[in-house]
Design a binder for these strands. Structure first.
Lengths: 344, 344
DNA sequence: ACAAATGGTTAAAACGTTTAACTTAAAATA
DNA sequence: TATTTTAAGTTAAACGTTTTAACCATTTGT
């Protein structure tokens, strides 16, 4: 069966294709009420569906958004396994769909290849998460397209960001542990990059310690990668080498889960022997055993915010959106892995 | 800066655009070695990137694949929160990217809207998971495009499927429990749909019981929805109403996690008091506490298989692919939630 | 009464590809 | 040598939109 085109519609309605195009794109004032309704009727009757390739080619919006998330080093697979990213994607997709956009979800080899995609597909914009290659961002600016960054700190006002107050979050978590009487508090965290989210959480941790009049022990911070495995490893090291440590702040829930396992393997009970705090509040946090006390960021909402910002920039122009980054709220999700320190 | 087009390339190479197109698309024989290399040089020098919209419009492949996953009833959000789906998507994306395709990931309101997307974007194919609306599939057949189904049982050979032997999986899990001496084994499961994956697992459960000479108690099957919450609920009911039950087979890991929590809340220990077996082996299965014994399906690999089948159908024609569905292997992942029944 | 402005409509030129049909020259066949 | 086949390229039409510029009626302002 042949495709129904705008020409078919125009013939049926007895007008030109230009007129049809105008009403389809809501160019008010260009056509009369009467022709508008004739056209709408014809569209309805023929069940006309516009071809976005043609639209895009003709120089208007493609209504396609690129969404980039990191991928595993080895397998080149999307890091969707990390619930943090899947939640973000959920929030983004829902909002984009609602506005008639589609999302091309794709991993990139540290930046390589994304630009090609952007040009090939005439992307209207992009949401990019967790890429740290500086050079990538230089390239990115050349394609004149709005871009929103999530968790990819780059000091360049060209890009919009939707962030959270990571410093405050790190502070909140640590403060909770301090308030529960803990004084020897470890930090288990991914690589601390200059200006990165992880660094800010680390800064919040240090500030909470300082304000409580506690010493900051550099050897209480275990820094390597954000993964379950590393949490497990670090916990083993803590149990073996630092019996005085009674609390752990893991700067991401995934790591916290590993810590839970590592402690348990070392014969430590949580929270009786060691308290553990996490960060993110991914869905598993409430499903694991015991349920994880953590700093909640509404990840889905954050994705939606990113999409909103991007759409606004696309549809109303870059200048329309506020210069200040959107900052999502944080709160503590108190569950069962933090306990008051009982002197024994 | 203006876009580099095929015309620019042709001028630089001193040939026609047709010639360029031929070498770009590997039309061997249409063009000599010499011109081919002239063209390739020009492409290189100008850093030419083809416009896929134009390609698509000109009637060739769009190199775009639709990937459809279910969404939450209320929020209209992708069900990516379910790790089962995110894993599949990882497998699919990696393979598609590798072959130069892109993926439009999208949720649909029980089928509504997908067809429009397919036409608007000239999708080359689709991978569809977990949609049960019969009517949806009728519509789907009208768009003449290869489609691979995952976990959406529809008895129609028009569609290709990549499945697992759910019956055998159900059998394996139950058999394990039986072999460990359990005789009162509950099944906690999502809605049992005719010909669905869940029904097959249920059938496997019954067969294992029967072959072991055990009674099948209809009131030992708890059937409602595949969610953490339901697992919790069912476990509470089991603990309260059926103290004789010493083992639970949950037909999905997400449910199993809920069961773990429900049992623990009811004061039952796992595996000392009750053994629990799951299905899927999502990543959390090994992270939870205690680590879940479950039936492993390599979800990522299954996604990749689906992508492979689809690409083959697209590039070599429908008839090229085998009629029989691909069936992925299953195996037991023995961890710590199943224990030999100790008579007390 | 005439020029100017306005509102509605349209024809036709893009947009960047692919490809069917055609040309030409060289090679193969008779 | 005269003809047919093959190889290598080219031309130009198509694909389905948007949009510019032109056109025609009216209405408005002098």
């Amino acid at each position: 069966m042949k495709r129904i085109t705008i020409r078919d519609v125009s013939e049926r309605a007895g007008v030109s294709t230009a007129a049809v195009s105008y009403v389809l794109n809501g160019r008010e004032g260009k056509v009369s009420q009467e022709t508008a309704s004739k056209v709408r009727r014809a569209v309805e009757e023929l069940n006309y569906i516009p071809d976005f390739s043609a639209r895009s080619l003709a120089g208007t919006r493609s209504k396609l958004i690129g969404v980039v998330i990191p991928q595993t080093e080895d397998q080149k697979q999307l890091l969707l396994q990390n619930p943090f990213y899947s939640e973000l994607v959920c929030g983004i997709e829902a909002r984009l769909r609602q506005s008639g956009y589609h999302m091309i979800l794709s991993g990139v080899d540290k930046g390589e290849g994304y630009l090609d995609t952007s040009m090939q597909r005439n992307l209207d914009g992009a949401i990019i998460m967790g890429i740290y290659q500086e050079s990538f961002y230089d390239d990115l600016k050349r394609v004149k397209v709005p871009i929103v960054l999530i968790d990819s700190y780059v000091n360049d006002s060209y890009f919009q960001t939707v962030s959270i107050d990571d410093e405050a979050g790190g502070y909140m978590a640590t403060e909770l542990l301090v308030d529960n009487g803990h004084t020897n508090i470890a930090l288990v965290t991914g690589l601390i990059r200059k200006d990165g989210a992880v660094e800010k959480r680390f800064l919040g941790y240090k500030r909470a310690l300082k304000e409580a009049g506690l010493f900051y022990h550099p050897d209480y911070v275990f820094e390597h990668s954000v993964s379950y495995e590393y949490g497990q490893e670090a916990a083993a090291a803590i149990a073996a080498g630092h019996p005085e440590i009674t609390a752990v702040f893991a700067s991401s829930d995934l790591v916290a889960l590993g810590v839970l396992r590592g402690l348990s393997d070392a014969g430590k009970r949580v929270p009786e022997d060691v308290s553990v705090g996490g960060f993110d509040d991914i869905p598993v946090a409430r499903m694991c055993n015991p349920p994880l006390t953590t700093v909640r960021q509404n990840i889905v909402a954050r994705g939606a915010m990113a999409a909103d910002r991007l759409l606004k920039a696309i549809e109303e122009g870059e200048e329309s959106v506020a210069d200040d980054p959107s900052v999502a709220r944080l709160e503590l999700a108190i569950r069962q892995t933090v306990q008051r320190l009982t002197p024994n």
